[in-house]
């Protein structure tokens, strides 16, 4: 399989979550060599893209509709990498507490889900932008 690269910039609005999520689903369905459940992978990519983008839109960019979110997806034979860029203050991925199932709260599950479903997750703070990098092995 040749590499696939998708690089897309959308306005900082939650209405575009569905578009980006569906691109993730469509890509998962194209991965003929993926040995796992492709429909499960389609849901997972939809989800991690939705969660990462929603974080950028709401927390990094405070729903400022004048900003944009850049999403880059790169797939080669062995792995898939998703990058979601933001121009916010940034945060420390390691300082986020895991959710407590016995004390269910309404917020704070997004990054937990991303870390659960992806093999590697990294957040790089930088100027002028930060990037959340998520990798998943396909073999």
């Amino acid at each position: 399989m040749n590499d696939i690269e998708v690089d897309i910039v959308v306005p900082n609005q939650t209405r575009y979550l569905s578009l980006i999520g569906r691109i993730g689903e469509a890509i998962a369905r194209e991965l003929d060599h993926y040995r796992g459940d492709r429909e499960a992978l389609a849901y997972q990519l939809n989800l991690v893209l939705t969660e990462a983008m929603a974080n950028a839109i709401k927390h990094a960019h405070h729903e400022n509709a004048g900003k944009t979110v850049r999403v880059r997806i790169h797939i080669d034979r062995d792995a898939l990498q998703i990058e979601v860029y933001d121009q916010g203050q940034g945060f420390d991925l390691e300082s986020l507490p895991p959710p407590q199932p016995d004390v269910p709260v309404e917020h704070g599950r997004g990054l937990f889900l991303i870390r659960t479903l992806m093999d590697e997750v990294e957040y790089r703070r930088g100027k002028p932008e930060n990037v959340l990098i998520m990798r998943k092995r396909l073999q």
């Binding site: 979550l17 999520g21 849901y43 939809n46 989800l47 939705t50 969660e51 929603a54 309404e106 917020h107 704070g108 599950r109 997004g110 937990f112 889900l113």
Partner: peptide
Amino acid sequence: RFIDSSGLGA
């Protein structure tokens, strides 16, 4: 057919 963390939160 799709729910994310904010849907669960709602």
